[in-house]
Design a protein around this nucleic acid. Structure first.
Lengths: 173, 173
DNA sequence: GTAGTGTTACTCGGATAAATATTGTCCGAGTGACATCGG
DNA sequence: CCGATGTCACTCGGACAATATTTATCCGAGTAACACTAC
């Protein structure tokens, strides 16, 4: 039972993107720099999130990624499934039928008890993941997190964010 | 989130061993044959279960494996942890500290919110797995399972089981 | 007939290769911003 | 001075290796049963 390493990066990226405002975007390279990851690899997971309709990608200069839905409607389960795939962790291979004893197919009509038990547990896992909303994660972080870390990440977001339609301050030339 | 293939084999093997009576044992080769698996590979997982004090191994002829504890005290969590390892699926790499922003270590004293959320969900998963006792699995199987399949597996167990101290029937000779 | 003894076959155990999935990297296509040129 | 246009740099997207984990296999150590021999 090993969870992909990229899940952590995906959740952190989504949490940072959730702090953007007004449809602003942030390039994947900035996210990779924020977490000390190789940009090319993080892109792979961001693409998976985009394919799952969790993120939106804006191409071109001043482009980047942005949440496709409000953070309130995104759960950790959505992110995990997008990165790891929708298949359950325990996949019953029906080894009970592979023995030397050959029975009629009707004898295996009932699902495997062991598979059912494992899926029950996994259902509880997914329910717990679904209960963890991205908005709660961000709120909890901004509220209970260390003020210095929050300020630093907020500054990073402000610095690297790309407004939706070049509303840049343009202080100088 | 992919669960090892051997977990299924381990649980099925444990469930079959739970149906033995009076300290009888069953060799790993019989278990492998029952599920159509390569004996050498199944042995690896049975060894893991033995190392975790879930199974007992009896060497020599007429030897084999046997539950080390009553089935009521064995949960699916025990088996999963024995095969997959005790480490949690989500392992926080503290990527929040790997960014270019260097803060004092005290800023990261509080645990990562994302890690905490993932561990909460995994805690629910483990609790659900711990609630699934091996004895319940076996009872449910014998009660609600297809009678033909139950009879066949019971016959297999009776045929391949090795009594504890050669109490063989010795009908002829 | 009984006890002792050597052999034998069967078991588990750990160390060793192959296959697969994950991780990491690279290059190409697309797009909007910017500078330049013309009116 | 304003607009159109061409160039460019930056972005994402998918295809290609390297590594780690999982899967599968083999060979060796140990043990108790079995057969044989001696008494």
């Amino acid at each position: 039972m090993k969870l992909s390493e990229g899940v952590e990066a995906a959740i952190h990226s989504a949490a940072m993107l959730a702090r953007l405002e007004g449809g602003a975007t942030m390039p994947g390279s900035a996210l990779a720099e924020a977490f000390g990851l190789s940009p090319s690899y993080l892109l792979k997971h961001l693409q998976a999130l985009t394919a799952a309709r969790i993120l939106e990608s804006v191409p071109g200069p001043a482009g980047g990624y942005r949440l496709a839905r409000p953070a309130e409607t995104i759960s950790l389960l959505d992110i995990v499934l997008a990165v790891e795939g929708p298949r359950p962790a325990f996949r019953c291979g029906e080894i009970r039928q592979r023995g030397p004893v050959k029975l009629d197919a009707s004898a295996y009509a009932r699902p495997c008890n062991i598979n059912a038990a494992m899926l029950r547990a996994e259902k509880a896992y997914r329910a717990a993941l679904a209960a963890e909303r991205l908005s709660d994660i961000v709120t909890e972080y901004e509220t209970q997190g260390d003020p210095r870390a929050v300020a630093a990440s907020c500054a990073f977001v402000t610095q690297r964010a790309r407004p939706q339609k070049s509303t840049a301050t343009r202080s100088n030339t």
